[in-house]
């Protein structure tokens, strides 16, 4: 069962190519935005990585619900993998946003709703990993982390709303004159193409990574079983 499936190899190639094409579009095809200059090009991968981050947390919550209903540990491995990948992508999105914000907002960081929520989301899912580390029994760990993934997913929108009620300067991209003054802009069609292609490319990339991560989780579970077997034989 450790043989790599052909479909996964195909997915690897497709995901890699799509990311390369997306990068190609960003660097050589899409025009430079006149108000902000080249740094605006960070936007395409910033949104795409943030999208993967949210997608992963959604997948983790769904995997949590399914695990609680079915009790198959495969869903636990999937949820854990989704959270791990999302943490990395979301952190990347935050750093990219910060790099974009430096020339545009003239600051690396501001306590703006989306940024603040993003930081809190990172903390919630870091706590998720700490919870997993603290529980040894696999069934119990799976149950607890499923519940925590579901609760985390519920609380994020409420956190966002509550911080938003305090105030916002994040650009609402497709939109109004007010948005333009904060670093928003209207996308013309090459921009839209690049934007949506990046989203698609990253979605495929996420699926690919998640598959690999699930296989790793399964292999580790097998190793754990074997290890217990060999200990009990040794005694």
């Amino acid at each position: 069962m450790n043989e790599k499936p052909n479909l996964l190899t195909i997915l690897d190639v497709v995901a890699g190519l799509m990311i390369l094409v997306a990068a190609g579009l960003v660097f050589f095809y899409v025009p430079v935005e006149v108000m902000m200059g080249s740094v605006q090009k960070v936007f395409y991968f910033h949104v795409a990585t943030a999208w993967v981050g949210m997608l992963g947390f959604l997948v983790a919550a769904i995997a949590g619900v399914v695990y609680l209903r079915k009790g198959n540990l495969l869903w636990d491995i999937a949820g854990n993998g989704a959270v791990e990948i999302s943490l990395i992508f979301f952190l990347t999105a935050i750093v990219l946003g910060s790099i974009w914000a430096r020339p545009i907002w003239n600051t690396w960081w501001t306590w703006e709703p989306r940024l603040t929520t993003a930081a809190i989301v990172e903390l919630i899912y870091a706590a998720y990993l700490l919870l997993r580390q603290g529980v040894d029994d696999p069934e119990r760990r799976a149950r607890f982390s499923a519940i925590y993934a579901i609760f985390g997913f519920f609380s994020v929108p409420l956190t966002f709303i509550s911080i938003r009620m305090l105030r916002t300067i994040h650009p609402v991209v497709i939109g109004s004159a007010e948005a333009a003054s904060q670093g928003g802009f209207n996308m013309d069609s090459p921009m839209k193409l690049t934007f949506f292609f990046s989203l698609a490319a990253f979605t495929v990339f996420f699926a690919d990574l998640l598959w690999h991560r699930i296989r790793l989780g399964q292999l580790r579970a097998e190793v754990d079983v074997l290890r217990i077997d060999s200990y009990s034989k040794g005694e």
């Binding site: 902000m36 200059g37 960070v42 990585t49 974009w100 020339p103």
Partner: peptide, 17 residues
């Protein structure tokens, strides 16, 4: 003429990525 020069930030962003 007024397009700001922010290439370095773009390169930094994609490097980090």
């Amino acid at each position: 003429f007024f397009v700001p020069d922010t290439v370095n930030y773009m390169i930094a962003g994609y490097l980090v990525f």
